[in-house]
């Protein structure tokens, strides 16, 4: 369902939700955004991948925040427990909670975008929007290159083992082996890239003027209106927050309504 939307619509919605989360900086809002992102992930059938990718990022972050602010928060006044320099304070825990939920909300909503968006559609849309084609190239090429490089590295490792390179052993030995694998990898990548550059140039990649797209990406009036609305909402939230901080305008005390 989500993946059939125009990629710009998904991008606008997720970007706006992340901006809104930061502007609100209020843990109930952050939690609401995170839950909404997970709900949308269920709907799009990408929940498992979003959870797996976010766990790698968020678990170390939460651990680090809780240890850092939970134990060492010199500004804290309400001490719950203390061992020498380490003191558990209410303020420290609250700060960790606030920061952690905010990042969690943003990470989940942005990863949802990554897993839902159809990259070829996104690249085609960017081309029609006159974004330099180079950007689309770098994006799409990085995504296809990553698995290819993994494969190439495995091949290099096999070839070198067959030459008598013993992998493993001490850290120094492993580092030396890593260097020997890096060299042919980087050489091959740079030489392949040079070849590809010529081919791209010959196929007119660098020519000035508008580029067209073979792929047709659907867009609707409703989606265009929706994009304008969410981006406007996010801008309003940012302006409200900045003016609150500079001119002392009171910020709404309760969490604002969800972004959906």
């Amino acid at each position: 369902m989500l993946s059939r939307l125009n990629p710009l619509t998904t991008l606008a919605a997720c970007g706006a939700a992340a901006t809104f989360t930061v502007a609100a900086s209020n843990w109930p809002v952050s939690v609401a955004v995170a839950v909404a992102a997970l709900g949308a992930g269920v709907g799009a059938g990408v929940l498992r991948r979003v959870l797996a990718a976010s766990a790698v990022i968020l678990l170390p972050l939460w651990f680090s925040l809780l240890v850092l602010h939970g134990l060492f928060f010199p500004e804290g006044r309400t001490v719950l427990a203390g061992w020498g320099p380490a003191r558990i304070t209410v303020e420290g825990l609250a700060f960790a909670l606030e920061m952690g939920t905010r990042t969690t909300g943003c990470v989940l909503v942005l990863l949802l975008f990554s897993f839902v968006v159809n990259v070829p559609d996104l690249v085609a849309t960017m081309t029609t929007r006159r974004i330099p084609p180079q950007f689309g190239y770098v994006l799409a090429s990085t995504l296809t290159l990553a698995p290819a490089i993994t494969e190439q590295l495995a091949r290099i490792r096999q070839a070198q083992e067959a030459r008598g390179l013993v992998l493993g052993g001490s850290l120094v030995q492993r580092l030396a082996a890593a260097r020997l694998q890096m060299v042919p990898l980087v050489l091959a990548l740079i030489q392949d890239a040079a070849e590809r550059a010529h081919a791209l140039d010959a196929r007119g990649f660098n020519s000035p003027g508008p580029h067209s797209t073979y792929r047709e990406v659907a867009d609707t009036r409703g989606q265009r209106t929706f994009r304008r609305a969410v981006l406007g909402l996010a801008a309003a939230a940012v302006i409200l927050r900045l003016s609150a901080s500079w001119f002392g305008v009171p910020v709404l005390p309760s969490p604002l309504a969800g972004n959906e």
Binding site: T127, P133, F205, T213, Y214
Partner: peptide, 12 residues
């Protein structure tokens, strides 16, 4: 295949 044509801005 179309890549080279896209870069010349040929219509769809």
């Amino acid at each position: 295949l179309a890549f080279g044509l896209e870069n010349r801005g040929m219509d769809r």
